[in-house]
Design a protein around this nucleic acid. Sequence first.
DNA 1: CAACAATACATCGGTCACGAGGTATAGAGA
DNA 2: TCTCTATACCTCGTGACCGATGTATTGTTG
Lengths: 174, 174
Amino acid sequence: MLELAILGFLYDTPLHGYELRKRITALTGHVKPIAESTLYPAIKRLEKAGLLERATEPGSVAAPRHVLTLTEDGRHELRRRLAEPAQRDITDENRWFTLLAFLRHLEDAPAQAAVLRRRLAFLEEPASFFYEGDRPLSAEELDDPFRRGILTIARATSRAELSWLRDTLASLDG
Amino acid sequence: MLELAILGFLYDTPLHGYELRKRITALTGHVKPIAESTLYPAIKRLEKAGLLERATEPGSVAAPRHVLTLTEDGRHELRRRLAEPAQRDITDENRWFTLLAFLRHLEDAPAQAAVLRRRLAFLEEPASFFYEGDRPLSAEELDDPFRRGILTIARATSRAELSWLRDTLASLDG
DNA sequence: CAACAATACATCGGTCACGAGGTATAGAGA
DNA sequence: TCTCTATACCTCGTGACCGATGTATTGTTG
């Protein structure tokens, strides 16, 4: 997911690591902060894989910067990751939101719609967090107020997202 | 989080690894599946730390089972992790839901309320995923339909959770 | 003028997680 | 009889991520 965010931000414009870090922090930092010691090795991985190139520039304020630019391979790889996300990226809300944040880079409405439809299919499956045998339990059937909360919140999220997904799919298809 | 789920399930009753895995899969598997190769080492870690003990029983169907029982240290450790969660466990919905699923084991209403209040404080902070300078942007200000979706869904979740939190805190306090 | 914060990058050791694969038993279906 | 599925546990290599720590430079604040 971190790699997707790096590729996604650099797709628009070259950035140096520090600026990239600030953008990633703004995007997902309030939920899941990214440590510097995670970002810099991730940049190195992507560089080693030929997805980005670095150019050293004198720092405008302090130390010299490494300006990062996506290669053509990098641009292609981002589109690939957006078009063919792992199932994890569909089901885990953190990953899904990161994917959504850059989905516009896909630039192909049917491909975008196909990704949204995978999320739609996931949300339409009858799933719960709590079961009696195989039967999913509803919030009303739980005594535990905290577990009831999980289902209440999850249901509200799911409803809002389903309605957004259907609207957006309609406008992508239409 | 995996460790919290293990401790949480074993707090109620001793279980063997395979059954534990099924319960964890039911709880969070549709969002974030847990591999066997993650579960068994985690059990070993907890055993090594003295938080649980294993007893070998002949398998009812096939191979022999290792029935896992929490030690007194393990029971104490679960309560500690529930009462003093890391900030991560408060902000990341996956982690937060796992914590909520076992919060009833805290058995002390003021301690439960204190945890809920940490989540409340987090949700009341004005945070977005997208900014113009320092100002958080609202869904209406975004052109990108996918980014607008993120904010729409996050806002619906937040509203539902705030209302649930306030109700539940009122009943815990009253 | 000294201390501190912000900019900018990096390494190191350790933990956690995953996929691929392995071992073994028992019952069900072809 | 053979294969398949379910039960039940395990190891190994790899990679992701974190906290702690280090190195510079510049601007701000007391």
